[in-house]
Write a protein that binds this DNA or RNA. Structure first.
Lengths: 140, 140
DNA sequence: TGAATTATTGAAATAAATTTCAATTGAGAC
DNA sequence: GTCTCAATTGAAATTTATTTCAATAATTCA
């Protein structure tokens, strides 16, 4: 739960309280291999520990996002999904036609990141992007 | 209102009805030099022509978006903004710290678009992007 | 023209995310 | 240990966006 190097220990290092609610939420995010939505996290947490409010889930996610401990991605489903930042960065190609999701290595955005830094002195946050468009099958 | 080459004439060319509601909505989008939100469009339209429903505004925007006549951008304000596609494509750098918005030429994303097409056969929709990060003043 | 069909609209319900504010909890000071 | 104060939480309200579905409007075809 409060494993060294995990999100939990980083939170307390930074001076935030590690409340039971937060521990449950962190555990739900970390134990998931996939990208989870706020609702899914809430459902998991409530199952074990009923006194957690959905707004606490959102607030915790907001905090983790601000601290860079989780990344947020809008996959175009009308809800946002979260992923622990330390489990590796990657992007997704989302086909607007058939909904297919293609994973993408982080390096694809590296040239853009460099250009923005060089020409605009802007540190772009391109850690976990969803790029919309049409996949090969749908563009024929 | 139904000026040649405008969004309105394109809609009717494509076989969609040019209802009074749609004409008002189109006019509000086209007359705006800036990026407008659905609520702003609705406010403008209702002022002149009260029998328009907010859901018609959303539906019309959805239609225009699907037809590629307007582009949609989430500038991180918790609401989405729209812009006529024929008024030129561009991107925005949005500073997460101070909220500054820096305009960006479309060409910055061209290398990525090419790579995705070449390596993934994916036609990426990179017409009006908001890229989040930290501007020069806030990253010191 | 008039009937049939289809597109479009309005009103209200719904959903995800966020905000507000009072109540509670926990951490450090004394 | 207990007091104080800031951080955190829960409940409910709010906001933006979307969906549903019956009613209405417009177009097509006979």
């Amino acid at each position: 739960m409060n494993n060294p190097g995990g999100i939990g220990s980083k939170l307390s290092e930074l001076g935030y309280r590690l409340t039971p609610q937060r521990m449950m939420i962190l555990s739900a995010i970390e134990s998931s291999d996939d990208h989870v939505s706020a609702e899914e996290i809430y459902a998991q947490v409530v199952a074990k520990y009923s006194n957690v409010n959905i707004s606490t889930v959102y607030r915790t996610l907001e905090l983790l996002k601000r601290l860079g401990l989780v990344t947020e991605t809008d996959m175009g489903e009308g809800r946002v999904r979260y992923h622990p930042a330390d489990k590796g960065h990657h992007h997704h190609l989302v086909c607007k036609e058939c909904g297919a999701i293609i994973n993408l290595t982080e390096s694809v955005m590296a040239p853009v990141k460099d250009t923005l830094l060089r020409e605009y002195k802007f540190i772009a946050d391109l850690e976990h992007l969803a790029i919309f468009g049409r996949c090969i099958n749908c563009s024929k």
